Computed example of a mutant assay.
Amino acid sequence: MSSAKEVIVIGAGIIGASIAWHLTKAGARVTVISDSGAGGVATPNSFAWINASWGNPEIYFRLRIRAMAEWKRLANELPGLPLAWCGGLCWDLPAGRLEAYAAEHASWGYGIERVDAGRAAQIEPSLVEPPELAVYVAEEGVAEPVAAAKALLADAERQGARVLSSSVTALVQTYGRITGVDTSHGLMAAEEVVIAAGVGAPDIAATAGIKLPIETPPGLIVHSRPYKKLLNGLVHAEKLHMRQTAEGRIIAGSDFAGGDPGENPDATARDLFAAMKAALRGASPRSSRTSDGFPIIGRAEGVDGLYVAVMHSGVTLAPAVGLFATREILDGERDPLLTPYGLGRFAQ
């Protein structure tokens, strides 16, 4: 790989941090620019589920499986990364669809196990009503996303990267090529700019005439105060997805990506907390809420010097995207697993 390319990464969430770390490790001169600090905006509010679970075509499943393996590789390269392979218990589907999901993913090589109420109670003893039918994937896990992003950025800085607190006001173009960024602290030049700014990415890209078709619907997720250990892993019950963080907070939503907050988000949050307390023995949490974004990975066609990496499933995909983006930016090698996810699939 090239040892001298100057790259600016816009965004310090888990995706920006991973790309910055991989680029720095590969020898690039990297500057990370963020106006929200290490961890970004969406990353702190992520459910942080690492999985290759239901609802996706096989081609996307393959990318996610690879990303799960890359998390293990990354943890070996950066010891102490806050990562736990705690397993996931799911029954948030009608029985027929749950069976179909289990059969399909088992045929793809996913380590999925059908479980009854007795086995579910062994996996998660705090459940008030263990499901009669669920599926369990022991290889699924969670990361503590802000701590992971901070660890990646700190190690990138140790290896020579710069992390700057500033806002990017525009991409700078010279003869049709992106040659840097204009920031609240002045112009900065680079050979390549990476947009990994999550929900802020469309406004930045628009300054170069590039439309990013990213949807950012609101999604409500609640966080409890730190509490005694109630959950061993991920729980995906009907309209109630939960996990417990390393510090003891229970994170919950009606969907892992955050449910519809409705016209009265406070009331929706209260209802969600009531459902959480009813589902777990001994739970008594308090609330906060958040939202997150959508996926594009690759170079912006027709504009040299610009790479875009914004996506939902950011926590799952982060280490693979960091590795693949680095290879593409420095060596021009695009991993086949990224083939479907370029910006070129959208009409500009």
Rank of each mutant, 00 (worst) to 15 (best):
Ala201Glu: 05
Ser224Ile: 04
Ala197Ile: 06
Gly186Asn: 13
Lys150Thr: 00
Val146Ser: 01
Val146Ala: 00
Gly200Tyr: 11
Leu133Gln: 10
Val181Asp: 03
Ile123Met: 06
Lys211Trp: 07
Leu212Cys: 03
Leu133Met: 09
Ile221Arg: 14
Ala170Trp: 01
Asp203Leu: 10
Glu192His: 13
Ala189Val: 09
Ala196Ser: 10
Arg162His: 05
Ala206Ile: 06
Asn232Gln: 07
Tyr175Ser: 15
Asp182Thr: 03
Ala156Trp: 07
Ala147Pro: 00
Ile210Pro: 05
Glu129Phe: 03
Val135Trp: 09
Ala190Tyr: 03
Ala206Trp: 07
Ile204Thr: 06
Ala156Leu: 05
Ile204Asp: 05
Arg225Leu: 13
Ile195Ser: 12
Gly198Pro: 04
Thr183Tyr: 09
Val142Glu: 02
Ala189Gln: 14
Ala161Ser: 15
Pro145Asn: 02
Pro145Cys: 09
Ala205Asp: 08
Thr216Asn: 15
Ala196Trp: 00
Ile221Asp: 07
Glu140Asp: 14
His223Asn: 10
Asn232Gly: 14
Ala237Ile: 04
Ile221Asn: 09
Asp182Met: 08
Ile210Tyr: 05
Leu234Phe: 01
Glu144Asn: 06
Gly180Tyr: 08
Ala170Gly: 12
Tyr175His: 15
Gly180Ile: 07
Gly186Thr: 11
Val235Leu: 02
Pro213Trp: 00
Thr174Ile: 04
Pro202Trp: 00
Ala151Glu: 07
Arg158Glu: 08
Lys229Gly: 02
Leu220Met: 12
Val142Asn: 13
Ile210Phe: 06
Ala189Ser: 13
Ile178Phe: 04
Ala237Trp: 00
Ser165Cys: 12
Pro213Gln: 11
Ala208Arg: 09
Val193Gln: 10
Lys150Ser: 02
Ile195Gln: 08
Gly141Pro: 00
Ala237Glu: 04
Thr174Pro: 02
Thr169Tyr: 11
Leu230Ala: 09
Thr174Met: 06
Val193Arg: 09
Ala170Lys: 13
Ile178Glu: 00
Val137Gln: 10
Val128Trp: 01
Arg225Met: 12
Tyr136Gly: 11
Leu127Arg: 02
